[in-house]
């Protein structure tokens, strides 16, 4: 009797622990999910002949852009990075910051004028060198670099007046 009884018994696996684990996994993946951020890059090069005798003697026309901080501006919360709890912004940005760009004897404080000035150079051949001085930040350099790349200059390098402190 007992034997036949067992035969007909339906085997019901207990699903509860599996569902628990599955939910935990699901929640883990949702929480750790980071959406692919859209990122771009700007290509540049460093001087190749640093620390050794330069092999080229011929003078070539070049553009040397020197960046100075004319007005450091003030650090304030950036409203574009605001959240519900901090509507004024989580991250800081500069307000009223002015950068002075010097190319040879010319001096500019806005990028439109600099762009205008640079149109006279041959975009494929003229090397452009960036030399950014004291207190400039990454964003300042990328802003000018963006203009120069947009104009079509091909040879972009960074000069080193490696100022520290």
């Amino acid at each position: 009797m007992a034997k036949t009884n067992r035969k007909f018994e339906e085997v019901k696996p207990d699903m509860t622990p599996m569902i628990d684990v599955t939910f935990l996994l699901l929640i883990f993946f949702i929480v750790t999910l980071k959406f692919k951020t859209l990122e771009g890059r700007l290509d540049a090069a460093l001087p190749k002949d640093m620390g050794s005798a330069a092999t080229k003697a011929e003078e070539i026309e070049k553009v040397d852009i020197v960046l100075y901080v004319a007005n450091p501006g003030s650090m304030q919360p950036d409203p574009s990075t605001g959240s519900r709890s901090q509507p004024q912004g989580r991250l800081n940005h500069f307000v009223g910051r002015v950068i002075r760009y010097e190319v040879g004897t010319q001096s500019f404080t806005d990028l439109v004028a600099l762009r205008q000035f640079l149109t006279r150079f041959d975009k494929d051949e003229t090397p452009v060198t960036f030399d950014s001085r004291r207190d400039t930040v990454y964003g300042d350099v990328v802003a000018v670099l963006d203009v120069v790349v947009d104009m079509g200059f091909k040879k972009i390098t960074f000069a080193g007046t490696f100022e520290n402190e």
Binding site: L38, E39, G40, R41, L42, D43, A44, A45, L46, P47, K48, M50, G51, S132, Y138, V141, V142, L145, D146, F158, G160, F162, E163, N164
Partner: peptide
């Protein structure tokens, strides 16, 4: 700039750099 200087050290000589920016 310091990273670039380190890149150009005689025993490294990396000369291609890319700067990341948001599109």
């Amino acid at each position: 700039s310091k990273i670039m200087e380190v890149c150009s050290r005689p025993d490294i000589k990396i000369w291609k750099v890319q700067l990341a920016a948001a599109e």
